[in-house]
Simulated scan of single mutants.
Amino acid sequence: MTDTPITPAQRDELAAEYALGVLDGEALARARSLAAADPSFRAEVARWSARLAPLLDDVAPVAPPARAWPGIDAAIGRPQQASNVVTLHRRVTLWRGIAAGATALAASLAVILVTQPVATSAPPVAVAAQVPLAAMLGDDQRDLKLMASYDPASRRLMVAAASDMQADPGHAHELWMIPADGKPRSLGTMPGPRMRAQLPMLMAKEFREGVTLALSVEPMGGSPTGLPTGPVIASGKLERA
């Protein structure tokens, strides 16, 4: 299976997933094989690591409770010595940072952009229109955070929750775009913590930098009015990725 040819887009996505360390099974075996034998694949992995690393700035550090250190020492049978506690603290701090990075980048993975080449003969305005967009959706009153990413070339939108997204069997989460005219347009309901959609051409023309994305709680199946009827639990503006 690992010898099955893959498209450039699949190869790019595989490199991103390998950079994040979220692969397993055959996909992980294929990525390791490519990384060992293909310098260009290794370069793609490095490119994704550099591209997604700035998203770590959006992850707030969380200190573990003081009781965690004695509990860890007891679990591993380590004597309660000051030098060992300091060493363990450093190691756990390192892993906490790695875990926080994985959370942010895994969310970004669900919104990976497949870059499309732009013809050199295209006018400057057309080139600018192909710049990928991203938005971090959140709310000061809630822990819910989502990452949205949009590729204008394919009109593909991807959204993923970076934190727990509680399922409610009686309600649905509906995503909206709010352009300059202030009138919300539904982008569909999220069936789970991840959502992928290809925007219609007319809607894609309004999907640009500065547009607000919002997530509301609606009845099952979505809003019956075509406008948000429930509380907005997360929102954010599209910016250049």
Rank of each mutant, 00 (worst) to 15 (best):
V118G: 05
A126V: 06
W95V: 08
A99F: 11
S121G: 02
A134N: 02
A107T: 06
T93V: 06
D143W: 06
T93W: 05
A99M: 13
L133F: 08
V118Y: 03
V131S: 08
V118M: 06
A110D: 05
V114H: 07
A122P: 01
L105A: 13
S108W: 02
D139P: 03
L109I: 00
A104Q: 12
A119M: 08
M136S: 04
T120H: 08
V118N: 04
A128P: 02
D140M: 12
R90E: 15
R91M: 15
G97T: 11
A119V: 05
L94M: 15
T103E: 12
P123A: 11
A107H: 03
L105Y: 06
P123V: 07
P123R: 05
A99Y: 10
G101S: 13
R90G: 15
A122V: 11
A122H: 09
R91S: 13
L133W: 05
I98W: 13
A135I: 01
G101D: 11
A104G: 15
L137N: 01
A100H: 10
A104N: 10
G138M: 03
L113D: 00
A106W: 05
P117W: 03
L109G: 00
A104F: 12
T115G: 02
V114R: 02
P132R: 09
I98V: 15
A119N: 08
T120F: 07
V111Y: 00
G97W: 07
V131N: 05
A100R: 14
A134L: 03
L137P: 00
I112C: 01
A107I: 02
I112G: 00
T93A: 15
Q130G: 04
G138T: 05
P117C: 05
A129S: 09
A102K: 12
Q141D: 13
A119Q: 08
V118F: 04
L109M: 03
D139R: 09
T120K: 07
A128Q: 10
R142P: 12
D140Q: 15
D139N: 14
L105F: 10
T120D: 12
A129L: 06
P123F: 03
